[in-house]
Amino acid sequence: MSVTSRPAHYGFAEHWLPRLVLAPSFLLVLVFLYGFIAWNGALSFTASRLLPNYEWVGLAQYEALFASERWWVAVHNLFIFGVLFIGGAMAVGIVLAILLDQKIRLEGALRTIYLYPLALSFIVTGTAWGWMLNPGLGLEKLMHDWGYAGFSFDWLVNPDRSIYTIVIAGIWQSSGFVMALFLAGLRGIDDSIIKAAQIDGASLPRIYWRIILPAMRPVFFSTLMILAHIAIKSFDLVMALTGGGPGFSSDLPATFMYQMAFTRGQMGLGAASAMMMLVTVSAVVVPYLYSELRRSRHV
């Protein structure tokens, strides 16, 4: 190290300046992120109702949570939404990326068009799809006006189907983003690999299936991570599109938490559900971060 040959005051600045610069944001993150997580954790063990109090009740809130039908509807919905949303956005995104990768004209324009929904907030997406899927206002009314009187599309107001409308809107919003990620990955593939496979006699679908998509594994995992955490914390889309309804048929854990903690005066229960979400997200993210960090240390 050449540090020893430098003047002493230079070493002092070099030593303390980075810490000084980083300290404010470090403090803010420590208090407002980890501090509040800890506070929320503490509240989940109390009998807090409209306002926080510190009457310790042990695991009672968690017991109440697991006994709540509404919570299990929300968890069940999260499962449906998560699987269909991640799978759907991934499938649509990959297909779009492969189609766009065929050296077509106007690629730049098309890419922007497909990516654009990402620029909208989930609130706008939810509101717009709410209008389109509203039987008295959108698609169903349009078809009726055109003379197809038998046409029916009432998923938005059907308690058994309402969660799927959220899936549709979510896929519409996110598949362009998946497309952009995969397109970048596809562009990273050496052209001569495709040529080699052509000479080897492989058809285009086979080249994608056997050679190119397997090479996309890192992109696949990054996309999965991003979509998974979008799915788990989904809140605004549900609020704008269905408001969790009809009834609580399209509740997700995030809307459940919001309802309990801030509108129904069940803050302890809300805190407990928030902790459950934190655990779920951690279960997804921590192994990923661990493997990523371990890999970068080895490189």
Binding site: D190, S192, I193, K195, A196, A197, Q198, I199, D200, G201, A202, R210, I211, P214, A215, R217
Partner: peptide, 30 residues
């Protein structure tokens, strides 16, 4: 005639090996 039916084999500057397959699978693919 399509490349695969021309009875040719090609070696590329960038080698163009299939990255996710091992050497045996690379040779066997064709």
């Amino acid at each position: 005639v399509a490349p695969k039916d021309r009875d040719i084999a090609m070696v590329f500057q960038s080698y163009a090996l299939y990255p996710t397959m091992n050497v045996r699978q690379n040779i066997a693919f064709g």
